[in-house]
């Protein structure tokens, strides 16, 4: 039964029967042996390259002109530099146009050092109006836990006293859901106002703290 299946396979491959197969037999066993030898040769070459090229298959890409690659790479670096410079000028313009210093308010969020609770979301309201609601990705949360600070809101408020409400939701390090909210007062003067909110999980006293910067 199996033999018939093999024959059908040969026919499918365009074989011409046993004579051809016998003729090829010698060739093939030689080729497979050759393959083993070639493999050894490859391994030998790899060893000469400190074992590193074992993990980096030799590719035709290496034929590409090194200068050509470097030239393009330098041009890419130049344009990155140009775009960064444009970004700086644009940021400056945006700040003047959209958030002049006498009304500018920026709210930042950070996580207390060493706190490992999982922050899911933060909602910020100013004078009763929701101005920001953010749901955190793993990368964002990781960045916060590593000491990064997120600017969650930039806007404008008149000078004087204001109310800031912060609501957070997340999971404690023990895996329990928790949510909490707190309310703070702050005063806006003629300089830009920076408000820093430091968050912590349950069991660490106050979960939401307002910092003055």
């Amino acid at each position: 039964m199996g033999c018939h299946r093999f024959r059908r396979g040969v026919e499918a491959l365009g074989g011409n029967g046993a004579a051809m197969i016998r003729r090829l037999e010698i060739l093939i066993s030689g080729r497979v042996r050759e393959r083993a030898v070639r493999c050894q040769r490859i391994l030998h070459a790899a060893l000469l390259c400190l074992g590193i090229s074992l993990l980096t298959p030799a590719g035709a890409a290496q034929d590409l002109s090194r200068e050509q690659m470097q030239g393009l790479d330098e041009q890419v670096q130049e344009i990155k530099s140009d775009v960064l410079s444009i970004a700086a000028e644009l940021d400056n313009l945006e700040e003047q146009l959209l958030y002049p210093s006498n009304t500018q308010l920026a709210v930042f969020v950070s996580i207390a050092e060493g706190d490992e609770f999982r922050l899911d979301s933060v909602q910020v309201s100013i004078d009763g109006e929701v101005v920001a609601h953010h749901i955190y990705s793993f990368k964002e949360l990781d960045a916060l836990q590593n000491g990064g600070v997120q600017r969650i809101y930039t806007g404008n408020v008149p000078t004087g006293a204001h109310q800031l409400d912060v609501a957070i939701a997340g999971k404690s390090s023990g895996g329990h859901d928790f949510s909490t909210a707190d309310s703070f007062s702050f005063s806006k003067d003629i300089e830009p106002k920076l408000v820093g909110i430091t968050l912590a999980g349950p069991g660490s006293g106050s979960s939401i703290q307002l910092g003055d910067w």
């Binding site: 930042f108 950070s110 990368k139 964002e140 990781d142 916060l144 590593n146 990064g148 600070v149």
Partner: peptide
């Protein structure tokens, strides 16, 4: 941390 914008730069870099 004393400078929030510096912290913001680290936040971006970490991601």
């Amino acid at each position: 941390l004393k400078d929030l914008y510096y912290g913001e730069a680290l936040y971006y870099a970490d991601q």
